[in-house]
Design a protein around this nucleic acid. Structure first.
Lengths: 113, 113
DNA sequence: TTGCAATGCATCGTATTCCTATGTATCATT
DNA sequence: AATGATACATAGGAATACGATGCATTGCAA
């Protein structure tokens, strides 16, 4: 079972940022595998989503890259810039807050605070 | 403070469906106001999002409409069809499940099950 | 009484973003 | 030798939320 791809919209970038925040640095393929593992195979990030997202994060100055050669194979590591670290905290906070709000909207009877 | 509009993607339809499930029937403007109220003004559904979404739900056979005249003003009520009711339960379940999964992904240290 | 805000419906064009499909290349295992 | 995993990347398409705009009624305040 995989989630409707629409659900990922708006959260993919936050997932990437938060992974980089906790792991320090990662390469693309590693990110897809880590998300797959953590989500019990329920969230599968595709290359067609991941790489454009990473490139955009770089354009926006939120991540920096360094390329390494592993044998003859190129590997591109991503890590957060100071700006990226700040943005990550904001995004994660916003996402958690959004979830809480949505819970209330989706279940009005639990809204008695 | 309003959430980044990207966050709503993939959840708007579920919000509408669940509101109809709990309220029985609602009209468009009423939906925007109810979501605004329940979310403490943090989720503001725009007409440009709402009406296309409602029309799509109708095309998909998930909601039915009835038009009423309130004074000289037209009001269009939406309610769930039997199909819509089933879909609503599935969507809400999927969304809650997605949140749980995402929590784990966003905070690996809490993933020790 | 005039004008503005709120109520109420709707659509067009735009931006975003995720995916499918495709391409290239290395490496390990069979 | 072939296949699957590793690893990067992009082009084109689909979905969807929004901004802008339009129309009409109603209520209220200046």
């Amino acid at each position: 079972m995989t989630y409707s791809k629409e659900l990922l919209k708006g959260t993919l970038t936050t997932i990437i940022l938060q992974l980089l925040e906790s792991k320090g640095r990662m390469y693309g393929y590693e990110i897809t595998q880590e998300v797959k593992k953590l989500s019990d195979e329920k969230i599968l990030i595709k290359e067609g989503s991941l790489y454009p997202a990473l490139h955009k994060l770089k354009d926006d100055g939120l991540v920096a890259t360094e390329t390494e050669m592993i044998g003859n194979r190129v590997r591109k590591y991503y890590s957060l810039t100071p700006d990226g670290s700040i943005t990550t905290k904001e995004r994660v906070k916003e996402l958690n807050d959004f979830f809480e709000t949505l819970k209330i909207v989706l279940n009005p009877r639990s809204a008695m605070v």
